[in-house]
Design a protein around this nucleic acid. Structure first.
Lengths: 107, 107
DNA sequence: GGCACATTCAACCATTTGGTTGACGATTAA
DNA sequence: TTAATCGTCAACCAAATGGTTGAATGTGCC
């Protein structure tokens, strides 16, 4: 049951990585610049970026010797849909909802 | 930097746990009943429930020898707020909602 | 060419996760 | 009181996380 959803949520489950994503809202950044505000090694930040890349939350493109990190916010979409749909489901009367589903999916 | 947000996102980063949350949408459940559809030991499910409890996504109350699990969906609120800050959450699109339903409720 | 810079790789370490099995304490029911 | 049920605990295992350091690889600059 390893889906993208697994990786997206897991990637978001770390404050350092959420902070990186927030930084990338402003602009694309080189790995070294991403690492600058953190009190950890460059290699550690590089690993965080790999996890974000694997989850599809960022992309990395090498130009010259610099690797640029770019936010890919649509990767969050599936997670948003899950979490938001969850909220909507919760508000529903489940029995009525099942009837609705049967009607809707039976053709 | 371990926040509730860390725990909520990390807890959601596992398909088994998301499925448990979906099951609990319908009604409160005993641990044994939660475990029933899964092909893993009761002890394993018990650990998943502990992780969900630590994240605040469910609560557990023991009555007699049965421990009841109850969804606490407001724990997701902080996560929704965070994720919404990326401006990706437009009005929920119905197609995506249906996709979600088919994924979550098909089996 | 040679040096400095940007980034990753490799090896290591401690902790957490996701699973197992078997024993155990608590509770209910016969 | 004895037996069955509910759920966790303890010990173990393999794999992943989050970090370190030091060496290696590319690339740009003088």
């Amino acid at each position: 049951m390893t889906s993208t959803l697994d990786q997206v949520f897991a990637a978001l489950g770390d404050g350092t990585r959420r902070q990186i994503l927030t930084m990338l809202l402003e602009d694309d950044m080189a790995v070294t610049d991403v690492a600058e505000p953190f009190e950890m090694s460059l290699a550690a930040v590089s690993k965080h970026l790999a996890i974000l890349t694997r989850a599809g939350l960022i992309s990395q493109e090498k130009r010259g010797r610099v690797k640029w990190c770019k936010l890919e916010p649509q990767a969050m979409r599936e997670a948003v849909v899950w979490i938001e749909s969850f909220g909507q489901l919760e508000a529903l009367n489940f029995d009525a909802f099942e009837e609705f589903l049967e009607r809707e999916l039976s053709d």
